[in-house]
Design a protein around this nucleic acid. Structure first.
Lengths: 342, 342
DNA sequence: CCAAGATATGTTACCGCTAACAGCCGCTGT
DNA sequence: ACAGCGGCTGTTAGCGGTAACATATCTTGG
């Protein structure tokens, strides 16, 4: 690794190299490359030409340090395999596209400790803002976020107290609404199936709201089944089978998400169970996948794209009027599909 | 923005603040925080205490610039909604976990121009390495990667010439193998369904290999159907319906991925078509989703996790012996499932 | 024709941290 | 007693850019 800096042809290039190659100062090169300040057309072209010829790639590390500006937005989500989060990400990317800001993703695997680490790592890059899923974090996490001095947007959920801003839906209300719709449709022996329940706070809140609705109608959950890990579709099948075997009189299954709901639906169809006549089904999220199923599962759209967009707008400062600390509630719509009897 | 640096309580903290709070030099604080060099236990504790009390978060921008070391690995993939890529990512993250390296993801949406931009942006952060899906890039992209002076690993595919290293499978061979298996099973009127075909080079290569196998057996594709966008499951249904209506004598459908294959399978089952008796089906990837389907779709595992792992190992320098430029070929296994007649 | 502004470029001083080296202390062996 | 060494801490000089200001050079109007 002995490299005499003036000879090594593979040394990484700096502004100085471009500056020498084009016969202007480093500052002028910097200006050209950032389109900032006045530079004559002739110079600009000469510099660009030199930069291209050399294959110069600016060093953002140095640039960020000098300018005290980092065009990154940290985005922290629990998982990439849930479909839901990539969609929020899409909303974020789309909106950030024309702001010069770039999202950087961190994944926590639903672990609060892991989340704490990821937040710390992200903050150490001094991003311009942070978007983070959920309202539940360790005290240390909340403290770090609060101290960071940048806009923080907690997304997906608004049932709780955000550190700064929040964009999402009320999952408790969503659960309640679904519960009410199911009861109104005449179902009475209602069961719940969920995955990741200990850590998926939003699924937990939906269940809470759901049970509220039941209890207001004088009902309680007829059965429940939880599981974590594995293929969601398969788990949905298995949980459904388990519940229906154990409690044959169950007439409705509410799932914590569409994927396991789809598994349940496929199971019921394969068993020749009358859906929604004998058993009704509902999931949550409104994932695209459902469009391809033989029958449309009842679900509620979680406004994922919109959540991503709004969050990104807050970070990008498109709400200049406000001081921060705003809470934007979105309202999901119930899509009855073909699995709740009309 | 007039901030007298010594008064503003919300100014972001620096090493100096911790240094003053603990009564040692900045250098010593730096050493403590990085666990580098000898520091007495007493000092270490005092510093850590001060850092924690203040809520100090190191500035990696400055650290990276000073040390000329960036613990980031750029990972560039076409899409997050394909399932396949998140899994590669998982393999990468798992392996990188204990190396102090951190993956940073960029998404290209299958656009070569977008890819070029993403590569440029990533390189400007001077990462320690890059992992990038596919072997097909613009000339400018290849040049940038080659010049970067860091390990580059192109993943998923090995049918082509990598810039540096590559880890993947031969999609051409995979397609050929599947074709041979299908012919061996006695199918003769074989059709192909694909999405994203213009830009998914790997799907294209599989089709090429597939057609090779057919032509070696004196056959040609009986029909083909392409589509982009929308719900893959639904598209699978629709394409299958289109093909079977247009070419009722088709006895096998080869799909460019499992998701549309699953859609096709659900369609056939719903139509009461005898699978695999009248029509055989096969997809590609071996996605977890398939486990939950009523019947197991024939597929080939694309070794995604393993690809991620191996790529990360190369970047992490676990193959110290080599000079770089290694090509690791993995071999997918054909999983006949229940949709090819035995 | 010259002051005053506009335009184009250069100079200086950092940004917050770390590599490299320098210093200091106390202990060891002889 | 003292050279020699290892453990611990401090000092200095950047890393590669950019903000802010300084310095030409060119216009332009009165």
């Amino acid at each position: 690794m002995t490299k005499p800096p003036s000879i090594d042809p593979r040394r990484t290039l700096t502004l100085r190299d471009v500056s020498e190659a084009s016969g202007v100062s480093e500052m002028t090169v910097s200006r050209v490359l950032r389109n900032r300040g006045d530079v004559s057309l002739a110079t600009r072209e000469r510099v660009l030409e030199a930069a291209r010829a050399l294959g110069y790639v600016p060093n953002k590390i140095a640039g960020a340090l000098a300018s005290q500006r980092v065009n990154l937005v940290g985005v922290i989500i629990p998982s990439l395999s849930n479909m839901v989060f990539p969609e929020v990400l899409t909303g974020i990317s789309d909106t950030l596209e024309d702001t010069g800001l770039q999202p950087v993703v961190g994944v926590t695997n639903y672990s609060p400790e892991r989340e704490e680490t990821v937040i710390y790592e992200m903050l150490s890059w001094r991003p311009s803002g942070m978007i983070i899923a959920g309202l539940e974090h360790t005290d240390a996490s909340r403290a770090m976020l609060a101290q960071a001095g940048i806009p923080i947007v907690e997304v997906m959920d608004i049932d709780g107290t955000p550190v700064d801003s929040a964009v999402g839906i009320s999952h408790r209300r969503a659960g309640r609404q679904m519960g009410e719709a199911i009861i109104a449709a005449g179902y009475r022996r209602i069961a719940f199936c969920g995955t990741m329940m200990p850590y998926d706070h939003r699924a937990r809140k939906r269940l809470e709201g759901f049970e509220e609705a039941l209890s207001k109608a004088g009902l309680t959950l007829a059965d429940r089944e939880f599981y974590s890990g594995g293929s969601a579709l398969l788990k949905g099948r298995e949980m459904t089978e388990a519940v229906l075997k154990r409690s044959p009189d169950v007439d409705f299954l509410y799932y914590s998400n569409d994927m396991i709901g789809a598994g349940g639906l496929l199971y019921c169809l394969a068993q020749g169970i009358d859906v929604p006549g004998k058993v009704g089904l509902a999931g949550f999220n409104g994932v695209e996948l459902l469009d391809g199923l033989p029958r449309k599962l009842a679900t509620m759209d979680a406004c994922r794209l919109e959540i991503g967009r709004r969050a990104a707008e807050i970070i990008a400062g498109k709400h200049e009027g406000t001081i921060g600390g705003e809470v934007i509630e979105l309202f999901p719509t119930l899509q009855p599909g073909d699995t709740i009897r009309g």
